[in-house]
């Protein structure tokens, strides 16, 4: 048990192995963008359907389509936290 913990702390703290902070941030942002895209594709399809039936749905549709943007915006913060 002790050995596992030591190993974990070494892996987590030792910056020399694995990838650099900048690369990790890039992966984080990239994955966040993928998630956003997946969510938006489905919400966007529904929003377009709703707008096609009823023009008043344009604004609500736009808001719901833009909601998953929060994912990528939060992922963007990672760059400033670990990127430098």
């Amino acid at each position: 048990m002790m050995e596992t913990l030591e190993l974990a702390s070494v892996v987590l703290q030792d910056g020399s192995g694995g990838i650099s902070g900048q690369a990790a941030a890039a992966i984080a942002v990239g994955l966040g963008a993928l998630g956003t895209g997946y969510a938006q594709s489905r919400i966007g399809a529904a929003a377009v359907g709703a707008v096609a039936e009823d023009d008043d749905m344009f604004v609500p549709g736009l808001i719901f389509t833009a909601l998953p943007e929060t994912l990528i915006i939060i992922a963007f913060v990672t760059i400033f936290l670990v990127g430098n």
Partner: peptide
Amino acid sequence: SNYEYVSARVRSRK
């Protein structure tokens, strides 16, 4: 299947 699109339209029509 494009369930999102179709159900949005269908619900609006209903």
